[in-house]
Amino acid sequence: MRRSPFFTFLIIWLSILCAALLQILPLPPLVDEYFRPQWMLLTAMYWALALPNRFGIGSAWIAGLILDVLWGTTLGFNGVMFGLCAAFMVENNHKLRTYSVWHQSLILLGLVLVYQMLFGTLSSWLDDALVTNSYYASSFITLLAWPWIFFTLRKVRRRLFLS
């Protein structure tokens, strides 16, 4: 069964919006600090991995801008970081797809750490932000979040015959 590109586009952005919702959902401070995965980044990375011709660097940039608007960050910080992360996923697409999910989540953990470091650096240089070490602790939940996101979105992709 062949779906129109528009349908694929719609489902991808719907999943991005769901991730945005999870990203800004209020949680108790402790959970918020250590156990909130980077939902939007990971969802965008899934689509950059699975359908790089539908969701590439430019789309990831737009997803990052949406997060900037929702977070109240200077417009462009998350945008550029999402775009660069997506570039990594798209460029190493063929290699990454052959890895097991656990291997992938280790790589994604590295990617999230790099994202957080560069985002923190950008914010403290240009925005006078105060970056604490506990901020980086939150990246380790990626190890659990990535398999979950991967299997959920793969199910969505296969059920709806997205390509």
Binding site: Q23, I24, L25, P26, L27, D32, R36, L70, W71, G72, T73, G120, S123, S124, D127, A129, L130, V131, Y135
Partner: peptide, 8 residues
């Protein structure tokens, strides 16, 4: 109650 920028 919504989450915002981690540094702000």
């Amino acid at each position: 109650s919504v989450d915002t920028d981690p540094f702000r």
